[in-house]
């Protein structure tokens, strides 16, 4: 009981952190990433306690500003803020003045005038979070900007891999699917390669262009060939709501070539992890039973997302200012 009552943040180190914002993984150092992951590990224990709340951000206000729809990321950030005792306001595109023609800059300045301390932004334009971060004294956390980055998703994926496999360096991560339009893929590529993982991208050339090789990864179009050497398979959601017919002919053909079917899963090493950022299309990028199997860590990712987001909020808003 005594360990439960000590200051929960005592084992959380923020002294090496010097960033107001988290807009992208790409500019982070290995030290930054390690600090984030270690802080998340400490916060994860908070979620298992009877009293799941710590006072780290008491008195601070976080605005969940979602210009593009999202449920799980928004809820995860909201819960993370509550656990840190921050006040939370949720704003969506339809409830904001953006629909009345107000610019992003003006909306943000108004939020700042209301003394928001943290702005979590989900936006359809690449660079939107950086745009705000440059103009505001509030901490800006990128919850996804166009096809650019989704830093907290990459952190929670990386955290989950480290938790399950005990390391990142040397791990072979295969990311499958719509890479071209995926901010999740980009942030994962940056985080994993910085931490020494080997990354292979798989999908049709229309969704996995060769230019990705400039980011230090391998591009291939043959899933069957890479599965036996994968330690992790991360299946990205096929966003058929934004896909046009020139990228691939049909969902059926996609599944036939790139879906993780039961037959394909046989080729995986026994201890390989199956990941998915959600929401999953059962039967498209992943077989429905596999998604629910013991090899799938999809729900661990969701749980870890909370710890990671607590760490990000704590470091950018608490430790940075503290």
């Amino acid at each position: 009981m005594s360990t439960e009552t000590r200051t929960p943040t005592a084992d959380i180190r923020g002294d090496t952190w010097s960033r107001k914002d988290l807009t992208a993984i790409e500019p982070l150092s290995v030290g930054d990433l390690t600090t984030l992951l270690n802080t998340a590990a400490a916060f994860k224990t908070v979620g298992t306690r009877e009293i799941k709340k710590v006072p780290a951000l008491r008195g601070q206000t976080m605005v969940n500003f979602f210009v593009e729809p999202s449920t799980r990321t928004r809820v995860s950030f909201e819960l993370a803020a509550h656990r840190l005792s921050a006040d939370v306001i949720n704003m969506s595109a339809s409830s904001s003045s953006l629909t009345k023609g107000e610019t992003l800059k003006d909306t943000a300045l108004n939020l700042q005038a209301l003394h928001a301390d943290i702005i979590v932004l989900r936006h359809s334009s690449a660079g939107a979070a950086q745009f705000l971060a440059k103009r505001l004294s509030a901490s800006v956390i990128n919850a996804g900007d166009g096809a650019h980055e989704h830093p907290t998703q990459a952190l929670l994926d990386t955290f989950t891999i480290r938790e399950k496999l005990g390391r990142i360096a040397g791990v072979h991560v295969v990311i499958v699917g719509d890479i071209r339009f995926s901010r999740v893929a980009r942030s994962n590529i940056y985080a994993l390669t910085k931490l020494g993982a080997r990354v292979t991208l798989v999908g049709p050339p229309t969704l996995v262009p060769r230019e990705f090789e400039h980011l230090g990864v391998v591009v291939t179009h043959d899933l069957d060939a890479v599965l036996p050497e994968a330690d992790v398979v991360n299946l990205l959601r096929i966003q058929h709501e934004r896909q046009r017919k020139e990228y691939f002919p049909s969902l059926g053909e996609y599944t036939a070539l790139f879906g993780l079917t039961k037959a394909r899963a046989e080729k995986l090493k026994p201890d390989a992890l199956i990941m998915h950022p959600g929401p999953i299309n059962r039967g498209v990028e992943i077989d429905s039973d596999l998604a629910d199997s013991g090899r799938s860590v999809i729900l661990d990712q969701v749980t870890n997302g909370l710890a990671v987001r607590m760490a990000v909020l704590f470091l950018c808003a608490g430790a940075y200012r503290g």
């Binding site: 790409e26 690449a126 660079g127 900007d145 166009g146 096809a147 650019h148 980055e149 339009f181 901010r183 980009r186 262009p209 230019e211 990705f212 400039h214 980011l215």
Partner: peptide
């Protein structure tokens, strides 16, 4: 369209 647009997601 090239390496930079790919990295930036633009």
């Amino acid at each position: 369209e090239g390496a930079v647009s790919t990295a930036l997601g633009l």
